[in-house]
Structure formats: structure tokens, C-alpha cells
Amino acid sequence: MTFWITQALNGISFGMLLFLLAAGLSLIYGLMRVLNLAHGSYYILGGYVGLAAMRATGSFVLATVAATATVTLVGIVMERFFLRRFPEQELPQALLTFGFLLIFADLSLWLWGGTPQTLPKPAMFERSIRIGAIVFPTYRLFVIGIGLVIGLGLWWLQEGTRLGAMIRAGVDDAEMARGTGVNVGLLSTAVFAFGAFLAGLGGIIGGPFVGVYPGADFEILEMALVVVIIGGLGSLKGAFVGGLVVGLLDNFGKALFPELALFTVFAPMAVILAVRPTGLFGAR
């Protein structure tokens, strides 16, 4: 029983991290029809910049600010100066974002080397708590909490605010939104920047338990893609449910069938694809 509960909590916390990444990926796709293959790079950039800032200042908060600011800026530059030139053209977008993926991967390797690194946890969450026979690190609970808070915040933003209404209008029909006076261009930059921000935050949050290393960008991208394939591109609910499903599948898969780890994630994805090609919550 202890095994199941511990693994479930591990899976949920990883699922929350995946939600942060998939939410940005999904929002960006929903509004701009851009599949950002460099989204995993934002994760490692966030992690590496955060680590450097933490070593320099010793502060988790300052590191978070430095990392998310850097990654947000990278996102803005990519959207404004590159992706904007290729609206609704999936192939140039894919080539462009994949080029950036390689550039960031090699730059990170150059600057920070090939040794896997873990970020230190904030001092507050270094301990573990004990409930009966179950010992669980408080940091994982913190991650679950962050995921829930951001999930709720995003849901409120999208359903309860004017900005959210504009985003939803843009997702449904960009041309009509433009016609009613929404500045879709500015909105696109804002959403892209926000997606990058969430992924950079993911690097800081995931840094202490997933770590940053060469190749983490690809792994995180793949996992986030599986999440949006299962949940449906453009759907926040899909990113949340998909994140949880993939986090749990991955964790139990690795614990129960280590040789088939990736398979336990990909096989259900293939089944969902066969039944619903646009995912659980995706628009038709």
C-alpha cells in the first residue's frame, strides 16, 4: 500500500510539472497554431539560468525571477522576429523551432557542460513528512500545490477575465476576434511569452527532482507532446488531465516495468489516438 501511495504522489507531482509545460504548449497552439518544438528548451534554459543565479545569489526567489525573465524574453524574441513571419505554416514553424531547439541544446552544453545537475530546493521544503508508514518529501507536495494554484489561476484567467475572453475568442476564430477590435498580434506575443514563462518556471520547479541535463529538453518536449496529444491541443483542461495521466503512467511504468518505461506512456497515447485523433478535450 505504501508503495502505491508514494508512487501515486510522485506521479502526480511529475504530472503537475508536465501540466506547466503542456499548458503553455497548448495555449500557444490554440491561439497561433504554432507547434513550438523549442518548448523543452525553455525548461532547460530555466533550470540552467536558475542554477547559475542561485549559485550567485543563494536565493531561490531571485533565481526564479532571473530564470523566468530570461526565458520569457527568449520567447518574445522567437515570436516577434521569427515565428510571426510564418502564420499558419506548420512546416516552416517546425523547422524554425527545431533549429532553436538545437541551438539552445548546444549552447547549454557549451556553457554548462554535460554533467547532469540538480537545483537545490528552497530551504523551507527540504524535509520530509511522515504520515503513518509513508514518508514523503515536502518538496513534492509543494510542486503539487504550485501546479494546482497555477491551474486554478489559469482557469480563472481564461473563464473569468476580459483577457481570457479575448484569448478564447482568438482561439475560436482569430479573424472574427480581430474584427471585433482584439489586437491578436499583441495577444499572440503575450500568450507566447506566458507559455515560455510557464516552461521556464517548470525548469526551476522540476530542477530539484527531475534535474537539468543535455537531452532533458527532448525528453520534456516529448512528454509534453504526449500530454497534449492525449488531452487535446488548445485545451487547458486537456493539459491538466493529460498531465496527470502521463505523470502517473510514467511513474508507475518506470516502477513496475523498467524495461518498457516509455512504452507505458506511448501505448495508451496510441489507443487514444485511434479512438479520438484530436485528444480527449480537443476541438474537432
Binding site: 523547422l95 524554425l96 538545437l102 549552447l107 552544453l109
Partner: peptide, 14 residues
């Protein structure tokens, strides 16, 4: 090489 390759992707697309 990987860095150069990434730049080639961007240049070809543009």
C-alpha cells in the same frame, strides 16, 4: 556542429 546545424535550420527557413 549541432549549433551550426541549428543555425542552418533557421537560415533555410528564413
Amino acid at each position: 556542429w549541432v549549433l551550426v546545424l541549428g543555425v542552418i535550420y533557421v537560415l533555410v527557413t528564413l
